[in-house]
Amino acid sequence: MSTTALSRTTAAVSLEAVSKTYGTGPTAVRAVDGVDVDFAPGTWTAVMGPSGSGKSTLLNCAAGLEHVDAGRVLLGDTDITDADDEELSALRRTRIGFVFQSFNLVSSLSAAQNVELPLRLSGRRPGREQVLQALAAVGLAERADHRPRQLSGGQQQRVAIARAMVTAPEVLFADEPTGALDSTAARGVLDLMRTTVSAGQTIVMVTHDPAAAARADATVFLRDGRIVDRLAGADAATVAARLVSLEG
């Protein structure tokens, strides 16, 4: 069992002895293997590891996108381990934000309409000012009426972040948020994420990029579904060296 504690404060998200297996019999793959980890409020944690180490599965389990086979997942004081789809959908509309590498914007909707979508899905009637404030926070208020095809990759990712943040979630999960961006756009997205953390947001981010991980407060490393190390405040070269050591 792997054990990593990122803080002694009450965790924003906790995984307790979590395991997740795909398939059965001799072809079964245990993607996450007995992981214990806490993510403290107001911190930014990067998750890294070799290909197939279980990074995205860990993120999906923590965010309630996948059910675990064993262990518990807690969002603050709420045990979401056995939550049904309706309960998890409600959590994702209110307490959890998720940013995907592929943006997942609705192509037929404007930036503003994409941002207000989770509010509408949760039964709220978003005001124009609230939506514009969310876009202004990511530097895109003037692009509110543009559709995704009229935006650059970096701008689309910032719209996706605004959409994830508009409900004021307790935790923002991000799966390779800069993976499809050039270096300039990636830097802008990472700057934005640092700003949100400075304002109290909790972020858990999967990345393959040591430079992106170095922007986080700490990096946890997975291998074969287990957390094997944690570095706090490490620079990109140190993070890269540790990642290479796990790939051998």
Rank of each mutant, 00 (worst) to 15 (best):
M1W: 13
S2Q: 07
T4S: 13
A5E: 14
R8T: 12
T9S: 13
T9C: 11
T10E: 12
A11Y: 05
A11G: 00
V13R: 08
S14H: 08
L15G: 02
S19E: 09
S19G: 09
K20Y: 07
T24F: 13
R30P: 06
A31N: 02
A31K: 07
G34R: 14
D36F: 13
D36Q: 10
A40Q: 02
P41D: 06
P41S: 06
G42T: 03
T43P: 03
W44T: 04
W44M: 13
V47Y: 05
M48C: 02
P50Q: 07
S51H: 07
G54Q: 07
G54L: 10
S56M: 11
T57R: 12
L59W: 05
A63T: 01
A63M: 08
E66C: 13
H67R: 15
H67N: 12
R72M: 10
V73T: 04
D77Q: 15
T81N: 06
D82L: 15
D84A: 06
D85S: 14
E86Y: 15
E87I: 14
A90N: 11
A90G: 09
L91M: 11
L91T: 03
R92F: 09
R92V: 03
R92M: 09
R93C: 08
T94C: 08
R95H: 10
R95T: 06
G97F: 04
V99L: 05
S102D: 06
S102V: 08
N104D: 05
L105R: 00
S108R: 15
S108W: 14
L109Q: 02
S110D: 00
S110W: 02
A111I: 00
A112S: 04
N114Y: 01
L117P: 01
L117K: 03
R120V: 13
Q130F: 13
Q130W: 10
L132A: 07
Q133K: 15
A134R: 06
L140E: 00
L140Q: 02
R143G: 01
A144Q: 02
D145I: 08
R147W: 03
R147I: 00
G153K: 03
G154S: 06
Q155F: 01
Q156K: 14
R158W: 03
R158P: 00
V159A: 00
A160N: 00
I161Y: 02
A162H: 02
V166L: 09
E170W: 12
E170Y: 14
E170F: 14
V171K: 06
L172T: 01
E176H: 04
E176Y: 01
P177L: 01
L181Y: 01
D182E: 05
D182Y: 08
S183I: 13
R187M: 13
V189G: 00
V189Y: 02
V189H: 00
T196A: 12
A199S: 13
I203H: 07
V204C: 10
V206N: 01
V206E: 01
T207Q: 00
D209A: 04
P210G: 07
A213S: 04
A213F: 05
A214L: 09
A214N: 03
R215T: 02
A216W: 08
D217N: 12
A218C: 11
T219A: 09
V220F: 12
V220T: 05
L222A: 11
G225I: 13
V228T: 12
V228S: 08
R230Q: 15
L231W: 14
L231Y: 08
A232M: 14
G233H: 07
A236F: 05
A237L: 15
A240K: 15
A240Y: 10
A241N: 14
R242D: 05
L243W: 09
S245R: 15
S245C: 09
G248E: 15
G248D: 14
